[in-house]
Amino acid sequence: MVSSFQRYIINKTATYIVLWFLAAFLNFLLPRIMPGDPIGRYLETLYNMGQGTTGGIVQVVPEAEKLRQQVIEQFGLDKPPYTQFFLWLINFLRGDWGYSLAFPNLPPVIDLVKQYLPPTLMLLIPSLVISWVVGNYLGAYMALKGGKVDKIGLSSMQFISLIPAYWLIIVLVFIFGVYYKILPVSGKPGYMIPSLSFDYIKALLYHWILPMTTITLIGIGGWSIGMRAYVIYQLNANYMKYSKALGLPQRVLGRYAFRNAIIPQFIAFAMSFGGLFAGNLLVEMVYGYPGMGSLLSMILGRLDIFGMQAIFTFTATMILVANYVADIMYGFLDPRIRRGITEVVE
């Protein structure tokens, strides 16, 4: 007798594995269907940076051919397609993600990720946690207070979450960077290569505050609006009316509403985790923050197919993992969902 709880987990697991294969396959196709000439673009880059041969594009052609040959060999492009796919998959799982064409020295993509991911996580995890906690608290507070507090709170949260991020950035930059001149406006930590040196970390922190504030504020807006809606929905539920008819005080009703409303927010929290790994393109770019967003923008800008392939697969994997965790959590948090789980098959 398989309990349906186990069946549920098996089902979910199977679904996510299939989804992952699908994502990996699409990413595998990517370089094969991309328009443009990525390798040509790479050589152009070399040339523009003055590191290429001085003779101009024409003289580069033989080198391009050589590079092409290398690439074909490395990715087994001469083998049958399915072998290519599995070869690629195995390499990906082993951490061999190919070389990035976005940088002149062709660094391994995995090394780039190792460099750029920590600053991104350092930026996004705290902001996700803070905005989640503060947002939920504010949202619940607005819903429970009602009246003026709710009206004013809701409109300001809507304002924050609806104004385009760059607006907020301009305002923050103006206040702290231009007016008070206490924080840097833009630029990487001194064009330094990310490392573990003390100077670098200090510079990073210095550059961290503004993007962090921006992302957190936007997040608070979104979370609080969601939470407010969930709490209001709970407050209108029949069980709330009944609890009130039995004389349970307002604060207990508030607790019930909060507890039932936070369930979907937990799930959403777990799901947003996956997104962290993609970085925040806009904010990182504007502030010149050296995270995954910036890395991605470079890679996209230079048509670095191998970088894209690897990073897309990587973020897709993380997003799927996060959703998978969220799905399983759902079953545990809500007994009504568990209902499906607790049914038995003899």
Binding site: Y239, K244, A245, N260, R336
Partner: peptide, 27 residues
């Protein structure tokens, strides 16, 4: 309000028509 809450459930009580939907689903 607090006096009313003290009366409800204790002196004045209601079996609501929506009884089937009257209980907190996660409790």
């Amino acid at each position: 309000q607090h006096r009313l809450d003290q009366l409800r459930g204790v002196e004045l009580s209601l079996i609501p028509q929506y009884a089937m939907d009257a209980l907190n689903p996660t409790m």
